[in-house]
Design a protein around this nucleic acid. Structure first.
Length: 272
DNA sequence: ATGGCCACCTTGGGTGGA
């Protein structure tokens, strides 16, 4: 089973690239962020033509998330929950569904703009609420399907998305320049490791990786050519799944195309 | 030199991204 996440920075613009990528990389689950589409604009037909069923939550201009599930392997996303029931939020940043026996949470963490700003405070509150919601017993389900339904096995969790957090200095092209800055602050990093504390494992770090592996590069300043990037897109899985993870890699190829997203897809491969 | 690019909504330039 293959799980992937990709911040496409407009699904309208990137749809041909997504369709091509899925043809070359027929993953079972693809989580998308920054679709930037109203729900009525979502390209259901093109996604279906590519062999996938989608659950999505969008809005005009900003944000927007989707979970694509391969029809002939895992079937359509089930028990879809939009947003975090513990955090009222007009911004469409979170969608979750049960796919292939996993509870898949697709997240677009707030950017935060600058440490100390109002948007930064919103980012911290948003993450705190996510952590609360992903605690054992709740685990990304709707409230009614959580702790109250004793005896029902809660599916294991996979949290994929654009976290807008570079967890460690090795995830940053220039740690000195970024020290204490947005995506790298102690407050943000502490929250990333709080998620780990819930029993979620960063699949990328289960493996020896080449140095300077990033998932985002600034459009400006020849960021990609200089590999001046950050690793801020992540795939976390419940610890009991860790022995099943065979690989996790960032696919830089789409970043080389004409009119690319500034993010690259990340793919995790699981046994079974 | 602290910005350079890209997408959106909209046709000029502000907002947001990271």
């Amino acid at each position: 089973m293959k799980l992937a996440t990709w911040n496409v920075n407009s699904l309208k613009v990137r749809l041909p690239q997504v369709v091509d990528w899925l043809a070359a990389n027929p993953v079972d689950v693809l989580c998308l962020q920054e679709t930037k589409l109203r729900d009525e604009q979502f390209p259901r037909d093109a996604i279906a033509e590519a062999g996938y069923e989608a659950a999505f939550a969008g809005q005009p201009t900003y944000n927007g998330v989707a979970i694509l599930a391969r029809r002939d392997t895992v079937g359509p996303p089930a028990d879809v929950v939009v947003g975090n029931p513990l955090f009222e939020d007009p911004q469409q940043r979170l969608i979750s569904a049960t796919v292939g026996g996993l509870r898949v949470v697709c997240a677009y963490f707030p950017n935060g703009q600058a440490v100390g700003s109002e948007k930064f405070e919103y980012k911290l509150r948003w993450i705190d609420a996510l952590i609360e919601w992903l605690k054992p017993g709740i685990r990304g389900t709707a409230p009614s399907a959580g702790g109250e339904s004793a005896g029902t096995a809660t599916p294991l969790l996979a949290l994929l998305g654009d976290f807008n957090i570079a967890p460690e200095d090795r995830d940053v092209h220039d740690p000195e320049k970024w020290a204490g800055q947005i995506h790298c602050s102690d407050e943000e990093r502490a929250r990333f490791f709080q998620l780990a504390g819930l029993g979620l494992v960063d699949t990328f770090r289960l493996f020896e990786q080449p140095p300077r592996q990033f998932s985002w590069w600034d459009y400006r300043m020849l960021g990609f050519r200089r590999n001046a990037g950050l690793r801020i897109d992540h795939i976390l899985v419940d610890a009991p799944l860790a022995p099943r993870v065979r690989a996790c890699a960032i696919d830089r190829e789409p970043r080389k195309l004409e009119q690319p997203s500034d993010h690259a897809p990340v793919v995790a491969t699981l046994d079974g």
